[in-house]
Design a protein around this nucleic acid. Structure first.
Lengths: 297, 297
DNA sequence: ATGAAAGCGCTAACAT
DNA sequence: ATGTTAGCGCTTTCAT
């Protein structure tokens, strides 16, 4: 009988059952390759549970983020995975109060007991900087954007710790918004006298901007200045001087976040807050000074 | 009264109203940057209509695609945007019969009257090849994967037309699956006697594989062989020889697809099939032989 | 103006 | 085993 094309209405079914079999996801930027990979993994896990994922973007704006979360709540999401636009917990209080399971990725949410999956930002940054110091560089510039964001702040801290341990003076270029990272701005920071010997860029977007900026003003990675990127990227190994990079296990982040969420869905509201910290990997290529012309020992 | 935290249940509301205020999207690969950009644009348009998008992946597999579409149908999607896994219309017949508005992106769906947003693949490929021919190259190899897919087939045709017009012999390397595009396979195609003077890679993944493959076997883009990529990519301009590329207007594709869908949603089932063909842009950089050491005029 | 009731498509509990 | 019914939370119609 039903073989002649009957499609149960999942909305009605969900209404009855009190669940939507959908999880909501809110990210700052859909197009960022790191984020895309997290999304992909979340989607895969969701599918294996016969769940669907509703994807929304906060554009990095807490106001939009709040609206999106609100909208997802109305739509009766069974759970939420959020890469927070900022560290404020206000937005999430309502969610947590409503009892909808929520897991944060990339950045933990302070002031509320919320599960999260993050990486060891500080250690990764610390290690990368120590690697540069090991090459003998003393002037090391850390370039980042939105320093108030958790990830940036942590990475700066890792940098500063490593510098302090080596008795070196920290030197940071932290802009409020990526768009301030123009070639001119970068160049002015590298003027002769005070040119650093090495640069660490603190995330993907920053790395791209620094790479472009340096190129545009005629400063060569590897030759004129060493370089390390926090966040690996597709062609890092294909640049004329291949780029040494810290890689986040993006798919694993997504997978674990989703698994965590489904655990909560299974045994609702049990267990204490879970904080999963994943390790990054450090991909040594040429730009840090290894096996290239620039061996700053 | 309601200011004390009342959240309408959108599922109940939707059940009553007979719509979900959600559109479903099915793509072959969430993590591909081109796709990510399309998704982002779709999501933005959806948001402006107070719609939400449910994102699923077909993994390029028509079987999964069919299951996902089925699942989205059950969930009462008001509309669907699909980047088809293959050209078969079977999967979509049911959707179109059920009356759910559907728009295809990247590849039209033949055998059914379905709206679509695509680019001028053949012309773009043709123009790119003619550009190479203009440099004086006679041996031009086209490298593609999954030649039965619409986009690949179209691009191959554009290539062949251009070659025919110039009275040159076509030379293609078309593999069933990207994974066959190993450095060895590539190298064997470039052995001395029959080494082409130029290569055009027919999509993003293919370009990455060719770039890596060539590098690994010690053949230099620009120096040993000219190169053009169908699909632009983030660091195309930053490689030691910057890569000339055809760029698809990915955000525009997403935007238009979503607009088309919302048009249909507004005045249901009106108008005939719409086929929107967007133009690509050709970004001349060095690898084609322009303004580099290799000026094959 | 405010209130009561029917019904969207389903499922789970109950009755035959 | 099969059939009937109530109700999920909302909106819309109709009555007060």
């Amino acid at each position: 009988m039903k073989r002649l094309g009957y499609r149960p209405n999942e909305m009605a079914r969900g209404l009855k059952a009190g669940r939507s079999s959908a999880i909501g996801m809110v990210v700052p930027n859909l197009a960022d390759p790191f984020t895309a990979s997290v999304i992909k993994a979340v989607q895969e896990v969701a599918r294996s549970h016969n769940y669907v994922v509703i994807l929304t973007s906060s554009e990095g704006d807490p106001t939009i983020e709040k609206a999106e979360i609100e909208s997802l709540t109305r739509r009766q999401m069974d759970g939420l995975i959020v890469a927070p636009a900022d560290g404020e917990s206000k937005t999430f209080k309502a969610v947590v109060a409503s009892g909808i399971p929520l897991v944060a990725v990339d950045q933990p949410i302070e002031g509320a007991s919320i599960d999260c999956v993050v990486v060891d930002n500080r250690k990764a940054s610390h290690d990368a900087v120590r690697h540069l110091i090991g090459h003998g560089y003393r002037g090391i510039l850390a370039v980042g954007a939105r320093p108030d964001l958790y990830t940036c702040a942590e990475r700066v801290q890792g940098y500063e710790e490593a510098m302090r341990e080596a008795k070196l003076r920290s030197n940071t270029m932290l802009v409020q918004h990526e768009r301030e990272l123009t070639p001119e701005a970068i160049e002015s920071r590298l003027r002769d006298g005070k040119r650093p010997e090495a640069i660490i860029a603190l995330n993907y977007v920053t790395s791209m901007l620094v790479l472009r900026g340096l190129r545009q003003v005629g400063i060569s990675i590897g030759k004129d200045v060493a370089f390390v990127s926090f966040d690996d990227f597709e062609l890092a190994d294909m640049l004329s001087t291949s780029v040494t990079a810290v890689r986040q296990p993006s798919a694993e982040i997504g997978r674990q976040a989703a698994e965590l969420l489904f655990q909560r869905l299974a045994k609702a509201g049990k267990a204490r807050r879970q904080k999963v910290v994943l390790s990054t990997t450090f991909h040594v290529r040429e730009s840090c000074g290894c096996s290239s012309g620039l061996s700053g020992n």
